[in-house]
């Protein structure tokens, strides 16, 4: 299982590196169109070939990593910032009306087809990378609220929580000092999972034209543009798809590896 963690770190690290490097350097300038060079197969000049407008696919993919990671990062941050406190509160007041409202609200959001609502929201707010972040982020809130509550509930019945109550500590202090540190590893694991799901969602939204808008490159739109010429130039469709698969795979492996390392139950077994 250690191989998974290393591979995950490598793949996720590669995506991050590509995103960072692309912010100041790409092999070719993607704003310059060169129709004469369109749909070229991979070569020494263009390692991953060119697209229908003659742009270098490697450079596009690197910039696409930037878009994907940024959208996913903000979406996960939105979900955690709202979801974790809600989940902690619900667990601290388990069985009370706060818990009831948080959980029923969660159920309600879960009942909505997330992709349809994300499409509706980007239509309401106008298609852009920022609005994709918000739309995906909102659906992360109930996920984190539920995971946080679920992880916090078994902590609340432990004796050290009772000891803290006997020491006069209130629900907020106990949540911050005892509960949160003890569920942090679980939340980190969930964050990597949600991060990878957000990348898939962003790709889907930009594939249907509701994500990042031109000229900002994104993997989803690269796929959409390559689709009509998939038989002529399969590389233009395969490369961005592989970018998505490898990044998501890396993040999932990373999450699994972290879970194995951080889960104290598994650590005892070893």
């Amino acid at each position: 299982m250690r191989i998974g963690l290393i591979l995950g770190c490598a793949l996720a690290g590669l995506a991050l590196l590509a995103a960072l490097v692309s912010s100041f350097w790409t092999p070719h300038d993607v704003t310059r169109l060169d129709i004469a060079q369109k749909l070229m197969p991979p070569s020494g000049v263009h390692w991953f070939g060119t697209d229908q407008l003659g742009r270098d696919i490697l450079s596009m993919a690197m910039l696409g990593a930037q878009t994907s990671l940024a959208v996913a990062l903000v979406a996960v941050a939105v979900g955690m910032a709202a979801g974790v406190p809600l989940g902690l509160l619900a667990a601290a007041r388990r069985g009370g009306w706060v818990d009831e409202i948080v959980m029923r609200g969660n159920d309600l959001i879960f009942a909505f087809p997330s992709l349809v609502i994300a499409i509706l929201m980007t239509a309401v707010l106008g298609p852009s990378a920022t609005n994709a972040m918000i739309a995906i982020g909102i659906f992360n809130i109930p996920v984190f609220a539920r995971v946080t509550r679920g992880a916090a509930l078994p902590i609340w019945v432990l004796d050290y929580i009772r000891a803290a109550r006997v020491a006069g500590k209130g629900a907020v202090l106990i949540s911050v000092q005892h509960v949160l540190p003890n569920i942090a590893s679980l939340l980190i694991v969930q964050a990597t999972i949600q991060f990878s799901l957000a990348i898939l969602a962003e790709a889907g939204l930009s594939y249907v034209g509701l994500g990042a808008q031109p000229p900002t490159p994104s993997w989803g739109r690269m796929l959409a543009e390559a689709q009509t010429m998939v038989s002529l130039a399969p590389h233009a469709a395969i490369i961005p798809g592989l970018c998505i698969v490898l990044t998501v795979l890396g993040l999932n492996l990373l999450g699994d590896g972290l879970r194995d390392r951080l889960d104290p139950r598994l650590r005892v077994l070893r």
């Binding site: 998974g4 790709a203 796929l223 469709a237 798809g241």
Partner: peptide, 23 residues
């Protein structure tokens, strides 16, 4: 399974079309 989870279904769809419909 890890690989399967990471597949965007629309990309998988394009590849399936490429192989089973086009070729």
């Amino acid at each position: 399974a890890h690989l399967g989870v990471a597949l965007p279904n629309f990309w998988l769809a394009m590849l399936l079309v490429l192989v089973f419909a086009v070729n």
